[in-house]
Structure formats: structure tokens, C-alpha cells
Nucleic acid binder design. Structure first.
Lengths: 329, 329
DNA sequence: CTGAAAGCGCTAACAG
DNA sequence: CTGTTAGCGCTTTCAG
């Protein structure tokens, strides 16, 4: 493995000059530059990034924390973030927290070990106090997530609007016995969405039925479970706002198994507009999140933070959602 | 940001001793160790990984190249690889090549820049000659992929068996007009699978109909497109081996739109046993790949390579596939 | 425009 | 068991 010294020796120049060529500095004569380039080629030289990172005190890597990589929403989000990162000469390090506090903390440590220059969090598992302890080591940007206490920028979707939109749609279709599925923790985002649901209900003079609030709803399997719970109820909801296409898919699939018709017996609204929502039958009414836009915006904010053009504040960037009406409600 | 020197100073010891504590070396008296630990705590010290990487000439990071992160198969595969990596104190760097030669090459460079200690490739875009040029910088392991020319270990599934199994199943169900969908490039893996298809056909005294070979089949959309092509044919296949659950889902969904019955009018076999296959209607007959096992095995081989217990050879580890019979055929 | 020199923060002989 | 010393490979003043 040739080093910069080998290149310098072969080119008959100093390491400083070679370094200048590597980093595209001005003030290197074309002649010497050619010499260096040739030597680099001849030796198959590639700069060692650990050395560069150490010396420059930066890595050009941004950690992107996601709670579940196998959730298409996050897979697409990561893709959009990566795209914007690449455009700006940055690399991303995908960190799959699996909704686990400890794992999240380990990844946040990367900021302190200088393995990454910044962190984008697409979910928050730990309390903000814990996260705050890390932040002075580098910028953090929240994406599709927020915490009331967080004093960092966050780029997110208008979840309140999402909850309101989905619920209103059901109400307009004439459903009044509406159930609600959610993950289980009323973190900022989930809270807003629920608030939107509540608001739409209230405005229609309806109240929320606590028996129809289903938690721990994440996966297709959870959807099936919830549908079975509903089937056993004496007083059943006739519509569900699920907060996730996967959960919605599970509900629809199980409902059909149970001999129920969707949307006649039970209407369903998903969230995300994932590929599955077009393929399932009946096709899913869902709420599309502008994934590309949110990813790009998040990276943009991060880049500004890194270049100190912007300083860390709790600024919120909010993007709109869109309801995609299909057949399930 | 405190450094090792700050810790040493505060503890009244040398940097060497602090380093020993950091790295859990034996031969540090408990008393001094306590002193160091306390100093580290008091300062909030965390070792700088760029410095460690430079000094140790290794990063404990393995790059995992995947062609498409939004494909659930790869998302799950990455998860299983990560799990095994974490168990062994390794970190993975997920690299999304997007089926792009140039991106693949950029990621392979990480091996030369010493950003990673090894590379796991779950697809190959470039010719092997190109890849070979990189390999002396560190170990490469192929996962669910192989190249005839590759002189590195590969952990893969028996695709020939997969192609054979899916086709035989269709034949046993009485279908004889069987079409075949594939990505478009007959790389090792795809070739084996096709060969299995051919073999099953031949054994049944059937020949492959070239009109029913559909290429560029990757996504749900592609499935829809193919189904529409079929609808226009005078002589139509009555069964399809798709090589992908996504494509199969697209085909089924579109077939129903066209008023066709699945499997009566057209039977479909998928590949991967992705979540979608259970939710779509009719549920998809598909071929399950042991993702957990293949990921774990791949990492195991990588770890042996890194520890020099094993040297790089073209050894092949092959895992079996399993047919999951459902309703689509 | 170019080179010499001084580290970035850490680890690993080696000597004691 | 502990400290001294010599770098890992690169970049960046500072002179010239």
C-alpha cells in the first residue's frame, strides 16, 4: 500500500505538494501537478482516509438513524437522504436502531468518537436529556420526528394535518365509529397525528371511543391481531385510521379471512402510500408523505449546519401531506 | 474535546497506561485502572476513532454492497448481516449501489482507502476483472451472488434448485405453458435459476418458448407491464415463474384488473417470500430464501477471512431453498 | 509556487 | 505493572 511519501519520492517532490494535488489546491504548477498525478497512477496510490480524517478532524460522513430499515418508508427516506448527500460530497452511514434505546445511544456516540460529522435522526427512542448530552460534539437534525424539548432543527410533515385529513375523509364517507391504531408511544409526531384525529372527531360532534384505540401497531401481523380483537367486540368500529400501510394491509387481509367486506363492513385508511397499498385489494386509501422532499430538505439543513451558515436552533420546517383516495374507504 | 493526553495528565499517569485501559489490556493494576476510569469519566473522554483506525490500520467496519435497499429482500439481508457483525464487534457500512457500475466501484474503493476492512457484495455490477483489481486491499465475500471467475468465497442459495422447484411445482399442477421473468442479465445467479427452469421443462418433455421470456422484471410496475404484454398475445402462457415477489404481485394485480382469474387463467410463482406475498390475493406461491442463515454465514466467512484463519479461495457455501405453496398456482 | 516541520490522537514495542 | 519513544499517513502553517 503506497503512501504519500512514496508518491512524493517517485515524483521527486515534497509530500506537501502531493497533498496539494490530492486536495485540488491552487498554486501548484501544471508541470509538477502532472508529475504527481503520474506518480500516483504508477503506484496505484489512494489516500488513506483514516489519516485524512484524523488530520482534518472531519469525515464527511453523516449518520442516519432509522428505527427499522425493513420498513419501506425508511428505506426510501434513506435513499432520498443519500442522494442529496452524494450531491454534496457527503457519505451517509445508515444506523438501524430497531426502536432500541441502547442501540440509538451507541450510534449517537459516533458523533463523539468523530466517526461522523453529524447525525440525522428519523426517530427518537431516548429522552431528550440523554440525546442532548451528545449534541455539542456535532450537529443533529431531526427528520420526520420531533421532540418538544429538542433544541435542534427538525424537518417534518404536518402530522396533525395527516390525522385530520384521514379522519375527515372517513367522516365524509359517512363513517362515524372510527378506531385508531398507533405505535404506543405518544412522541411528538404520533401525538400530533392523534390530535388531528381527535380534532376531526370533535368538530363532527363525535367523541373518541377508548375501546377502539389500538396500540403496538407496527406490522402486518399487528394488523391481523387488531382485526381479530375487533371481531370479538360487541360494539365494533366500522372504520379504522391505521397510521401505517403495513398495519392497514394486515387488517384488510385478516378482515377478508373473517368474511368481512372492506370497506362496507370496515373501512381502512393507511399511511405512507407504500407499494403494498396499490397491490392489496381493495386498494388502500392512504396518506402520502413527500419522502423525496423531506429527505432532501433534511440534508440541506444539515449541510448548512456543517458549514456554519446556520446555527443550531429549534427551527421547524414543515412539509404538507396528501391524501390518496382508493377503494378501502 | 479531551484527548488521551488530558486523561493521562488528570490521572497522573502516562498515555500508554490510559491506552491500555481503553483497550482492556491485562497488566494494569486495579488501582491505576480506577484512576484512569475516573479521569475518563470526569472529562467525558471518548477515544477518537480516526486516530485509532490510523494507528491500528483497521476500522472494524465491513462494507455491505446491496443493489437496492428498498427491496425488502436486501433490507432483511442487511439486517441479518448486521446482527452477526454486531455480535462480533464489527460495524457495517451499507452501500446502496442502485445496480450502478460506477457506484459499485466507488464503494469498492473504500477498501483501498482503508475506510473498511472488508467488503460483502450481494450483487455484482462490474466485470470481475475490475473488481479483482481491488481485492488485494482486503477480503471480499460474495453473498447470494457469484461469478464464475471470482476467486473469493461465496455464500449462496441453490438457485438452480429454486428454478427447478418452482417450475416443477407448476408442472405438477398441470400447467405446461410456462413463461419466465428475469432481470435481464444472466449473471451467475440468474443463470442458474434459469437453468433450473429449463431443466424442469426439459425433463417434462417441454421446450422453452422464447416468446414467453420476459426481461427487465424487477418491480411491481414491471409485473403490470408484463401482464399487459401477455394479454395482447395470441398464444398466451398460462403460468409464470417470476423470480421476484414484487413482479409476481404486479402480475397478479394487473391480471385481476384485466378480468383474469389467478390461478385458473394464469398461475404465478414468486421468489423471496416477502411480506407482500401473504397479503396479496390470491396469496403467492413463492420460494423462500433463508435470509437469516445466508447473512449469518456470510459474516462468519468474512470474520474468518479477517482473522486469517481462512484464506481467500473460491470456496462456495450453498444453502437450500424452500417452496411455500399458497394459492396463486 | 514549493518544501520543512510540526503535529492530529492514538497504540505498540521496548525497556525498566 | 508502567513509562518512553517512535511513528500510523496526512495536512497545514510558515518560510522562502
Amino acid at each position: 500500500m503506497p503512501t504519500i511519501s512514496d508518491v512524493a519520492r517517485l515524483a521527486g517532490l515534497s509530500r506537501a505538494t502531493v497533498s496539494r494535488v490530492i486536495n485540488n489546491h491552487p498554486y501548484v504548477s501544471d508541470a509538477k501537478k502532472e508529475l504527481v498525478l503520474k506518480a500516483m497512477r504508477d503506484l496505484g496510490y489512494i489516500p488513506n482516509s483514516a489519516a485524512q480524517n484524523l488530520r482534518k478532524q472531519k469525515t464527511n460522513i453523516i449518520a442516519v438513524l432509522v428505527p427499522k430499515l425493513t420498513n419501506p418508508f425508511f428505506a426510501y427516506l434513506v435513499e432520498s437522504i443519500e442522494e442529496k448527500a452524494a450531491e454534496n460530497g457527503l457519505q451517509i452511514l445508515i444506523c438501524n436502531t430497531k426502536y432500541d434505546k441502547k442501540r440509538e445511544l451507541e450510534f449517537l456516540r459516533y458523533l463523539k468518537t468523530k466517526q461522523v460529522d453529524g447525525v440525522i435522526m428519523t426517530s427518537i427512542e431516548n429522552g431528550w436529556e440523554v440525546i442532548e448530552a451528545v449534541i455539542w460534539s456535532g450537529p443533529i437534525v431531526l427528520c420526520n420526528e420531533y421532540s418538544a424539548k429538542a433544541n435542534v432543527p427538525s424537518v417534518r410533515l404536518n402530522q396533525l394535518q395527516g390525522g385530520y385529513m384521514g379522519t375527515s375523509y372517513l367522516l365524509n364517507q359517512g363513517y362515524t365509529k372510527i378506531g385508531y391504531c398507533w405505535g404506543g408511544i405518544l412522541s411528538g409526531l404520533a401525538h400530533d397525528r392523534f390530535f388531528g384525529f381527535e380534532q376531526a372527531m370533535t368538530e363532527s360532534g363525535l367523541s373518541v371511543n377508548n375501546n377502539w384505540l389500538f396500540e403496538s401497531a407496527f406490522s402486518i401481523e399487528d394488523g391481523r391481531r387488531i382485526m381479530n380483537e375487533i371481531a370479538k367486540m360487541a360494539d365494533k368500529p366500522n372504520a379504522l385510521f391505521t397510521g401505517s400501510d403495513e398495519v392497514a394491509a394486515g387488517i384488510i387481509s385478516e378482515a377478508k379471512k373473517l368474511g368481512l367486506r372492506v370497506p362496507e363492513d370496515i373501512a381502512v385508511v393507511g399511511f405512507d402510500d407504500q407499494p403494498i397499498s396499490e397491490v392489496i385489494e381493495p386498494a388502500l386509501t392512504t396518506i402520502r408523505q413527500p419522502i423525496k422532499e423531506i429527505g432532501a430538505k433534511t440534508m440541506e439543513v444539515m449541510i448548512n449546519l456543517l458549514s456554519n451558515e446556520e446555527k443550531t436552533t429549534a427551527k421547524i420546517y414543515e412539509l404538507p401531506l396528501e391524501l390518496i383516495a382508493r377503494e378501502s374507504s
